Amino acid sequence: MPSARAGWPVLAALLILLTGSAGAGDPPLVLEATIPLPDVGGRIDHMAVDLAHDRLFVAELGNGTVDSIDITSRKRSSRITGLKEPQGIGYLPARDLIVVANAGDGSVRLYTATTLAQAGTVDLGEDADNVRVDATTGQVLVGYGAGGIAVIDPARPAKIADVALPAHPEGFHYDAATGRLYVNVPDRRQIDVLDRKTGQRVAAWSPPEMRSNFPMALDAAAGRVAIGYRNPARLTELSTADGAVTGSIPTCGDTDDIFFDAVRSRYYVSCGEGAVDVIDRTPEGLVHHDRIRTVSGARTSLFVPELDRLFVAARAGWFGGDATILVFRPTP
């Protein structure tokens, strides 16, 4: 007899199709597929993509695993096990390496993506979190601990530098053109701006009455950095020149990822309440385009411009059912 769990991906897709868009007209995101993640329990964190080999890597924090997903066949192809709360993840195409940051033991582990053989470990002590890859140098940036961003040389592998922060960093981005790091520091209710070369803080921005700033998106071309706040739930856009607020708008609750779609001039805000908010940047300011229903707890996502797809991670249901990756196609 088929189990209830086996039917969860179909049920989740049906529910989203039926309840889908909270607005009128054609939705800005269309559910194209669901990719089942069998035997994945607990919270799912961040994702990374290997474009050359059509692979999606998923950090499954509550399960202690990373799954490698074949995007074309929409199936899991392999798995890394034995991890300690993996949350941040990155991919280095020049070396075919997966970088996994673990909250549980503070380690950053490197794996050859093709074989999933371990290629090294860098111990950061505690709470290794978000991962960013500096495409200009091939170095890896990892937020960690009570306040720092480690600079890792994957060739050794080893930590070669540290950027100090006043508290634990959450979402951050690096603008290679200006050499600046923009870092969410929610325990201080601020966004720190740092000079990557000197490690010195050049500014700290704190929009009033805003707390719990976790995700961030950077539109370097337009000179804008977007911050996702949880209390109150808002997307706030700042000028990278001076931190001036250029727009602010309410969003769905419990956001953990934000991405900017430069082609359509819109933001995708994924939220744990079970929605993705689509927000347009217009000459008149930020405008709420639509709210796309997902699944409760599906707060992490990855927008891949090269594929023109938004991947949303939906954890397993409380009463059974597989975790899934929801694949959305933006329109028009």
Rank of each mutant, 00 (worst) to 15 (best):
M1N: 08
M1T: 06
A4I: 09
A4V: 04
G7P: 01
A13V: 00
I16Q: 15
S21T: 14
A22Q: 14
G25V: 01
L31C: 12
P36T: 02
L37V: 05
D39P: 03
V40G: 04
G41E: 14
R43Q: 14
R43K: 15
I44R: 05
H46D: 14
L51Q: 12
H53S: 14
R55Y: 11
L56A: 09
G62Q: 05
D67V: 11
I80F: 01
G82C: 09
P93V: 07
P93A: 09
L97Y: 11
I98V: 15
V99R: 00
V100M: 02
G104A: 02
L110T: 10
T112C: 07
A113W: 01
T114A: 13
A117V: 12
G120Y: 12
D123V: 08
L124M: 01
G125M: 08
A128W: 00
N130E: 10
A135I: 02
A135G: 01
G138R: 13
V140M: 13
V140L: 11
V151S: 12
P154M: 06
A158D: 05
V163R: 15
A167C: 07
H168V: 03
G171C: 05
H173V: 12
V183Q: 08
N184L: 13
V185M: 01
D187L: 15
T198Q: 04
W205C: 05
E209W: 02
A217H: 11
A226N: 03
R230P: 00
R234M: 09
L235W: 03
V245M: 08
V245Q: 06
G247S: 05
I249H: 14
I249N: 08
I258H: 10
F259L: 04
F260T: 00
R266I: 00
V269A: 01
V269R: 09
S270E: 03
V276C: 06
I279Q: 04
V287F: 10
H289P: 05
R291T: 15
L302S: 04
V304D: 12
E306W: 00
V312G: 11
V312I: 04
A313I: 02
G320T: 06
A323N: 10
T324R: 15
T331L: 12
